[in-house]
Design a protein around this nucleic acid. Structure first.
Lengths: 243, 243
DNA sequence: GAGTGGTCTAGACCACGAG
DNA sequence: TCGTGGTCTAGACCACTCG
């Protein structure tokens, strides 16, 4: 994992950027880097490509490669580089303690929407799991997830009490690597207000996601209603064309 | 633009996927594609890599390359592939007519926050531009932007009435290609309620962004307050590790 | 014109999955 | 074991920027 050429070059360059070892906010040209590191120019390009996608550097054809000054000054923002996010099991909330309260756990027939998104048939069943997530005792998110029983027939409330993703990876060797997310906003309903301690005028953020396994199997549909003060999503966006 | 090898291969494969010309949801292996298209395997890899990042296909080492069934079934979702979004000048709202009402336009000293994000000094000035955006006469977004006068000294209210980004590109040859965005949620304030026609219980979505030019210069800081019914952001996320 | 990043190639070897 | 995608190389040529 750590011994890939482009990865190690990438890490090294990142370190040098943080230590201000590139005068004038400019990196050496690719051919020079290639010689310095003793690797091919292709590998340098790959390393720089990743850094560029993360918004750490800018490549300018004909001119050179430059450090994004915002990265140096406000590095904290970049914790969520390249469209990372706070979702489900990867919420990044510093030293604070997260906990989970299981609200509901049952097996039900998949409704049409869920069928559609998880590619199930009329007679397929799913776990329906409602969980309340807390941070330092403070509830901040109501999460409703649907998972096909045929993908993970061994699920149990005890597992659901913690991280389903971790369970999947550690015991089944399956990884959740991609998701399709949508983010929107809504007034809080009575249930939100009760569970999250919101006033009538205080809203929730909605995050919906379909999570995929390595092999492209849709694994979970999840809907999250998030206390507005805890809702924050950051991402670096490439506005380039040609979709 | 359109004549790059990997681009044209990518487009062609995308078309074939949509036309269901790959039986079993599986693409031919890379070496075969390489021969079929008469291009190097590297170019095939690059084309497939882009499609994978867009969530259209999944590559599985040792097994092959597979089509994401969600892409075929629910292709509309993928309009915003690869973390595209509705922002400022790129809002994608079908056949509906957008318009802009200029609320405020002045030159002011950059405040500390703006200085920080645009890398300005105490004595730098910025345009402060407030605009109300409407779609089919319905106001849906209040946008406040700050742009350094030294980057675009020729700005005028007439330009601001339409697209600043287009003006920049067409008359100055500068392109806005990247941005750092944060998304959050808030109750609406009185101003929101008045301008966007919201009730007291109805919230707004907040999108804040720093937009960058090709060369990495921060060009604009923008804050958007969006009518909750019009706030929708979709993105395909890679949860892979190693940041 | 010199220097830079972008594209593309041809080929070697590795790591993983499945039969 | 074989077929697959992943990594890496060495080098050619192109396109853009700038002095």
């Amino acid at each position: 994992m750590a011994d890939l050429v482009y990865r190690s070059v990438m890490r090294d360059i990142k370190q040098k950027i943080l230590k201000n070892q590139y005068p004038g906010m400019r990196l050496p040209d690719e051919r020079t880097l290639s010689e310095d590191y003793g690797v091919s120019r292709s590998s340098i390009k790959r390393a720089l490509g990743v850094l560029a996608q993360q918004g750490i550097i800018f490549k300018k054809r004909g001119s050179g490669t430059f450090i994004n000054p915002l990265y140096l000054k406000n590095q904290s923002l970049f914790h969520y580089e390249g469209s990372n996010l706070g979702v489900t099991d990867s919420f990044q909330l510093d030293g604070k303690k997260q906990s989970i309260k299981l609200l509901d756990y049952q097996v039900v027939p998949a409704n049409p929407d869920v069928q559609e998104e998880l590619f199930l048939n009329d007679n397929d069943f799913v776990y329906q799991i409602k969980r309340l997530r807390l941070i330092d005792q403070q509830p901040f998110m109501i999460e409703t997830g649907f998972i096909p029983i045929k993908i993970i027939p061994t699920l149990s409330p005890a597992i659901v009490d913690s991280s389903i993703f971790n369970y999947l990876e550690e015991s089944k060797g399956k990884r959740v690597t991609k998701s399709f997310m949508t983010i929107s906003v809504a007034p809080s309903d009575e249930n939100d207000q009760r569970l999250l301690g919101l006033k009538a005028t205080e809203p929730v953020g909605l995050m919906g996601g379909v999570f995929f396994l390595d092999d492209g199997t849709p694994f979970e549909v999840s809907n999250m209603r998030i206390h507005y003060q805890y809702m924050k999503y950051s991402t670096f966006v490439n506005l380039d064309q040609e979709r």
